[in-house]
Amino acid sequence: MTATSFALPAPPAAPAAAGLGPRALRNATTEPPWVQRLLIGLALVFMTLFLFVPLATVFFEAFKKGVDVYLAAITEADALSAIKLTLIATGISVPLNLAFGVAAAWAITKFDFRGKSVLLTLIDLPFSVSPVIAGLIYVLIFGLQGWFGEWLRDHDLKIIFAVPGIVLATVFVTFPFIARELIPLMQAQGIEQEEAARVLGAGGWQIFWRVTLPNIKWALLYGVILCNARAMGEFGAVSVVSGHIRGQTNTMPLHIEIVYNEYQFAAAFAVASLLAALALVTLVLKYIIEQRVKHQNRSDGDRAE
């Protein structure tokens, strides 16, 4: 580390650079224009082949057979029930993960306790589990041959191949998103403000609503949006637990698969375009929130000076 932490001497000390002026110095830390253009070109070709063309294809294929076909595909009864089920599953799983994210972030960032790093790793665990396996583990517990299979059947309750299973699988797959957005930010913000509020006599919930929440609202919002997008689009885990019953346990991505496998490509891409639009809205909101955070940091910095 000694080689990298030395203080740099004043620039004119180096005789080779002394006579060349500031232009030569600037060039010394950038690449020649042709290298820059080559690298930008390579990056754009790569992004075009793997990102832009797929995105454009979704909308192109969706409208290829005309607006009428498009509208018919997304207002058909099975499509509507798939949209409804997706909204239900998302509407339950996002608030659950929001509550978990806030609680976990509060415990991890505001307190110093034993086993914290283990907890952090465990929160990340669902990221590294294949969605298919996420579905499988719930089948092992609630499926007919599973731990609670017989008990559930005797009480006429259905979890697998029904809505509760879909919600569980969605919750698992989107489990870490909100916590992961909040923890680094709240870690950086420290606990001084909360402690000050406490000393001034504020209660726990007052501290959270009046001090913590205003500081984390943008990260929280982005976490919710990202979690929402992932919840609506989850395919693998939901596919295992859903049973693919048309009009009953099909979410939007599963509906896309069925229609696609029936060679109704325009209809499949029409429903897909709704999810792609949601993805684009997510990215736009992310961009806006990032600008807000930058702005907020800058004005905080000004105030500090």
């Binding site: 294809t57 689009g233 989850e234 991505p253 499949a268 897909a272 999810l275 993805a279 997510t282």
Partner: peptide, 10 residues
């Protein structure tokens, strides 16, 4: 952000 099934068919 893009659902995997959408990416797959595209």
């Amino acid at each position: 952000a893009l659902p995997t099934a959408v990416a797959g068919i595209a």
